[in-house]
Deep mutational scan, measured.
Amino acid sequence: TLFEALYDYEARTEDDLSFHKGEKFQILNSSEGDWWEVRSLTTGETGYIPSPYLAPV
């Protein structure tokens, strides 16, 4: 399942991933609570992002 960003987000740590509203992601790991490890389909980068900022496509 692909997810889309509902809002912009600016990374706060080196493990976070900055992204823009509308960017699409592949979920790599969603078992860590509200922070999911994802791969951006736009940039190819991986990192953690807050799951409340995402919605299924």
Results as ranks from 00 to 15, higher is better:
residue 1 T to W: 11
residue 1 T to F: 11
residue 1 T to Q: 14
residue 1 T to K: 12
residue 2 L to P: 04
residue 2 L to H: 07
residue 2 L to R: 04
residue 2 L to M: 10
residue 2 L to E: 07
residue 2 L to K: 04
residue 3 F to N: 00
residue 3 F to G: 03
residue 4 E to P: 00
residue 4 E to N: 02
residue 4 E to A: 07
residue 4 E to Q: 10
residue 4 E to G: 02
residue 4 E to W: 08
residue 4 E to D: 01
residue 4 E to S: 05
residue 4 E to M: 10
residue 5 A to P: 01
residue 5 A to R: 00
residue 5 A to C: 04
residue 5 A to G: 02
residue 5 A to E: 01
residue 5 A to L: 09
residue 6 L to M: 09
residue 6 L to T: 06
residue 7 Y to L: 10
residue 7 Y to R: 09
residue 7 Y to F: 13
residue 7 Y to H: 09
residue 7 Y to N: 07
residue 7 Y to P: 00
residue 7 Y to K: 08
residue 7 Y to S: 09
residue 8 D to P: 06
residue 8 D to Y: 03
residue 8 D to L: 02
residue 8 D to G: 05
residue 8 D to W: 04
residue 9 Y to S: 04
residue 9 Y to T: 01
residue 9 Y to I: 03
residue 9 Y to F: 09
residue 9 Y to W: 09
residue 9 Y to R: 05
residue 10 E to W: 09
residue 10 E to L: 10
residue 10 E to N: 10
residue 10 E to A: 10
residue 11 A to H: 06
residue 11 A to K: 10
residue 11 A to F: 03
residue 11 A to D: 02
residue 11 A to V: 03
residue 11 A to Q: 06
residue 12 R to I: 12
residue 12 R to N: 11
residue 12 R to G: 09
residue 12 R to C: 14
residue 13 T to V: 08
residue 13 T to A: 12
residue 13 T to F: 15
residue 14 E to K: 13
residue 14 E to I: 12
residue 14 E to N: 13
residue 14 E to H: 12
residue 15 D to M: 14
residue 15 D to Q: 14
residue 15 D to Y: 15
residue 15 D to L: 13
residue 15 D to K: 15
residue 16 D to H: 15
residue 16 D to F: 14
residue 16 D to R: 14
residue 16 D to T: 14
residue 17 L to W: 06
residue 17 L to G: 01
residue 17 L to S: 02
residue 18 S to L: 02
residue 18 S to I: 04
residue 18 S to V: 04
residue 18 S to T: 09
residue 18 S to Q: 04
residue 18 S to M: 04
residue 19 F to L: 04
residue 19 F to H: 01
residue 19 F to E: 00
residue 19 F to P: 00
residue 19 F to D: 00
residue 19 F to M: 08
residue 20 H to L: 11
residue 20 H to C: 12
residue 21 K to A: 10
residue 21 K to W: 04
residue 21 K to G: 02
residue 21 K to P: 02
residue 22 G to T: 02
residue 22 G to M: 02
residue 22 G to A: 03
residue 23 E to T: 06
residue 23 E to A: 05
residue 23 E to C: 06
residue 23 E to W: 06
residue 23 E to H: 07
residue 23 E to K: 00
residue 24 K to Y: 13
residue 24 K to G: 03
residue 24 K to P: 03
residue 24 K to M: 13
residue 25 F to Q: 00
residue 25 F to I: 01
residue 25 F to P: 00
residue 25 F to H: 00
residue 26 Q to T: 10
residue 26 Q to N: 06
residue 26 Q to M: 13
residue 26 Q to P: 01
residue 27 I to R: 07
residue 27 I to K: 08
residue 27 I to S: 02
residue 27 I to L: 11
residue 28 L to E: 01
residue 28 L to S: 01
residue 28 L to D: 00
residue 28 L to K: 02
residue 28 L to M: 08
residue 29 N to A: 08
residue 29 N to C: 09
residue 29 N to M: 06
residue 29 N to L: 05
residue 29 N to F: 06
residue 30 S to E: 09
residue 30 S to Y: 12
residue 30 S to R: 11
residue 30 S to F: 13
residue 30 S to G: 09
residue 31 S to W: 09
residue 31 S to P: 09
residue 31 S to F: 09
residue 31 S to K: 10
residue 31 S to H: 09
residue 31 S to R: 09
residue 31 S to I: 09
residue 31 S to C: 12
residue 32 E to C: 13
residue 32 E to D: 15
residue 32 E to H: 13
residue 32 E to Y: 13
residue 32 E to G: 14
residue 33 G to Y: 09
residue 33 G to E: 11
residue 33 G to K: 12
residue 34 D to F: 15
residue 34 D to C: 15
residue 34 D to E: 12
residue 34 D to L: 14
residue 34 D to M: 13
residue 34 D to S: 09
residue 35 W to E: 05
residue 35 W to I: 13
residue 35 W to P: 11
residue 35 W to A: 06
residue 35 W to T: 08
residue 35 W to H: 08
residue 36 W to Y: 07
residue 36 W to G: 00
residue 36 W to L: 07
residue 36 W to E: 01
residue 37 E to P: 02
residue 37 E to W: 15
residue 37 E to V: 12
residue 38 V to K: 00
residue 38 V to P: 00
residue 38 V to C: 09
residue 38 V to M: 04
residue 38 V to E: 01
residue 39 R to Q: 08
residue 39 R to W: 05
residue 39 R to D: 00
residue 39 R to H: 05
residue 39 R to L: 11
residue 39 R to K: 12
residue 39 R to G: 01
residue 39 R to C: 07
residue 39 R to T: 07
residue 39 R to V: 09
residue 40 S to D: 02
residue 40 S to N: 14
residue 40 S to L: 05
residue 40 S to I: 06
residue 41 L to S: 03
residue 41 L to P: 02
residue 42 T to A: 12
residue 42 T to C: 12
residue 42 T to G: 07
residue 42 T to D: 10
residue 42 T to V: 11
residue 42 T to W: 12
residue 43 T to A: 01
residue 43 T to R: 03
residue 43 T to E: 01
residue 43 T to W: 01
residue 43 T to F: 01
residue 44 G to M: 07
residue 44 G to Q: 06
residue 44 G to R: 02
residue 44 G to I: 01
residue 45 E to K: 15
residue 45 E to L: 14
residue 45 E to I: 10
residue 45 E to M: 14
residue 46 T to P: 01
residue 46 T to N: 05
residue 46 T to H: 09
residue 46 T to D: 03
residue 47 G to D: 00
residue 47 G to V: 03
residue 47 G to C: 04
residue 47 G to E: 00
residue 47 G to R: 03
residue 47 G to L: 05
residue 47 G to K: 03
residue 47 G to I: 03
residue 47 G to M: 06
residue 48 Y to C: 11
residue 48 Y to N: 06
residue 48 Y to M: 12
residue 48 Y to F: 13
residue 48 Y to L: 11
residue 49 I to D: 00
residue 49 I to C: 07
residue 49 I to M: 04
residue 49 I to F: 00
residue 50 P to Y: 15
residue 50 P to F: 15
residue 50 P to V: 03
residue 50 P to I: 04
residue 51 S to I: 06
residue 51 S to D: 03
residue 51 S to H: 09
residue 51 S to V: 10
residue 51 S to R: 11
residue 52 P to W: 15
residue 52 P to D: 15
residue 52 P to E: 15
residue 53 Y to L: 14
residue 54 L to H: 03
residue 54 L to N: 03
residue 54 L to D: 03
residue 54 L to I: 10
residue 54 L to V: 11
residue 54 L to W: 04
residue 55 A to P: 05
residue 55 A to M: 09
residue 55 A to Y: 09
residue 55 A to Q: 13
residue 55 A to H: 11
residue 55 A to S: 11
residue 55 A to V: 13
residue 56 P to S: 07
residue 56 P to C: 08
residue 57 V to S: 07
residue 57 V to M: 08
residue 57 V to K: 03
residue 57 V to D: 06
residue 57 V to F: 05
residue 57 V to H: 07
